[in-house]
């Protein structure tokens, strides 16, 4: 082929076409979504005074998100709930409704994920708000989930000698996994942040476009 102008135009327009079609159109269609209330008034506006969703995660949980990113949890965990009937997300208790674009608008980095080596975490805060469970699990997943392939994150914990009094925040570790007599396991700030982030992952609210239907 020797028609070079055609070649160049083709090279340019094919990619421009998909960029416009997929990305620019998405940006226009739902790139400006804002928070809203669970139901709308008759005119389709948010109801004044009602809480707005999704909620912004703040403080320690926000720092925990950073830990989640830097440790690469995303390579084993998704954060998206598919509609009932497509896969078994709802039956597995991963969410009472499908997750929709508005659920993600306040996250500066969206971590939908593409692997479910481990369970979906979109609603882990609703499912399991126990600090102790998460700390034990992060310290060594075999404690709570024998046979798990999740890596141990023991490096997020400090092992120290028990002082005069046991540390009030020491994680309860069963015999078989305990680092040893006279030692205790204390969460570092990053471990606390990660647990706070886990507990902040909740989707117990309705959105106008995705109401939770009571059974």
């Amino acid at each position: 082929m020797n028609n070079l102008p055609l070649l160049f135009l083709g090279i340019f327009f094919t990619l421009a076409f998909s960029w416009t079609g997929l990305i620019l159109t998405s940006q226009i269609q739902f790139g400006k979504l804002v928070q809203t209330t669970e139901v709308l008034d008759e005119e389709g506006n948010p109801i004044e005074g009602d809480p707005l969703y999704p909620e912004q995660i703040v403080g320690l949980a926000q720092q925990g998100k950073q830990v989640y990113l830097d440790l690469g949890c995303i390579y084993c965990h998704s954060q998206q709930v598919r509609r009932p009937g497509f896969g078994a997300d709802t039956e597995r208790g991963w969410g009472e409704r499908q997750s929709v674009p508005r659920d993600y608008i306040l996250q500066d980095r969206v971590v939908l994920g593409t692997m479910r080596t481990g369970p979906d975490l979109m609603t882990i805060g609703d499912r399991n708000p126990s600090d102790d469970w998460h700390h034990q699990h992060f310290y060594n997943p075999q404690i709570t989930s024998p046979g798990s392939t999740m890596p141990p994150y023991a490096f997020l914990y400090r092992v120290q000698e028990v002082g005069v009094e046991p540390h009030p925040r020491a994680v309860q570790i069963p015999e078989a996994f305990h680092p040893g007599e006279g030692l205790e396991v204390i969460p570092t700030r990053r471990a606390d942040a990660l647990v706070a982030y886990m507990k902040s992952l909740r989707m117990g609210y309705s959105l106008p476009e995705a109401p939770i239907i009571e059974q």
Partner: peptide, 22 residues
Amino acid sequence: IKAHSPDFLGAYEFLTFGRVRS
């Protein structure tokens, strides 16, 4: 190896699965 034996080199943060994989 980590994907089936999570304790393999499990103590090193810089070699945690999410990072080596990436």
